[in-house]
C-alpha cells in the first residue's frame, strides 16, 4: 500500500527546503546550552525530528538508502565513546572522573575555561548519541520490524541452519 500512493510534491518540496535550516538551528541549540534553554539532549531531539520529517515526506525506503542503520549504530556508540572518553581523559591526568579542570594543562587554557570546554564536549557526545537512538526507534516503529536491508544475510542463515 505504501508504494501505491504517490508522494505529494508540495510536502516533499517544503521538507527539502526546511531540513538544512532545522539542522543549523539544532546545532545552535547544542552550542548555546549554558546561555539559553537547550543543551545536548534537546539538540539531539531536534536533529532526530528533522530526520523524521525526511521519513514522513520522502518515504522510509528512500531515507534508508541515504542513512543506513549501520551508520546510526556507529553514531550512537561514538557519542557514548566521546562522553566516557573525556571522563577517562580527566582520570588519566590525575583528577576524578569528569573533573574538567585537569584538561587545562592539556589545552593551555586556565582551569575555568577548561571546565566550560569540557562540558561542551560532553554535550556534543550526548547529542550525537540521542540523535542516533531516536532515529533507530522511529525507523523500527515505522517499518514494524520488517527490515529490508539485511535480506541476503538472513537467507544464508536459514539455509545453513
Amino acid at each position: 500500500m505504501m508504494t501505491a500512493l504517490k508522494k505529494d510534491i508540495i510536502v516533499r518540496t517544503i521538507a527539502r527546503l526546511f531540513v538544512p535550516f532545522i539542522q543549523i538551528y539544532a546545532l545552535y541549540v547544542i552550542m548555546h546550552g549554558h546561555h539559553s534553554p537547550g543543551g545536548g539532549f534537546q539538540g539531539g531531539v531536534i536533529l532526530a525530528a528533522c530526520m523524521a520529517l525526511l521519513m514522513i515526506s520522502h518515504g522510509v525506503e528512500e531515507t534508508r538508502k541515504r542513512i543506513s542503520e549501520k551508520t546510526m549504530a556507529l553514531f550512537s556508540s561514538g557519542g557514548v565513546f566521546i562522553y566516557v572518553g573525556i571522563g577517562v581523559l580527566c582520570l588519566m591526568m590525575g583528577g576524578y572522573f569528569l573533573d574538567y579542570h585537569m584538561l587545562g594543562s592539556l589545552l593551555n587554557v586556565p582551569p575555568a575555561e577548561a571546565r566550560s570546554l569540557g562540558i561542551l564536549g560532553v554535550e556534543i557526545g550526548v547529542a550525537i548519541a540521542v540523535m542516533a537512538v531516536m532515529y533507530s526507534i522511529f525507523y523500527t516503529i515505522a517499518t514494524a520490524g520488517n527490515d529490508m536491508s539485511g535480506d541476503e544475510h538472513n537467507i544464508h542463515d536459514d539455509d545453513g541452519a
Binding site: M1, M2, V11, V29, P37, G38, L53, I56
Partner: peptide, 23 residues
C-alpha cells in the same frame, strides 16, 4: 528559542498524523 521549537514540533506532528491516516 522555546517557541521556535514548538512551531517545528507542531508542524511535524500534524504531518505525521495526516500521513498515518492516509496510509
Amino acid at each position: 528559542d522555546i517557541s521556535i521549537v514548538y512551531a517545528l514540533l507542531n508542524f511535524i506532528g500534524t504531518l505525521a498524523v495526516a500521513k498515518y491516516l492516509e496510509m
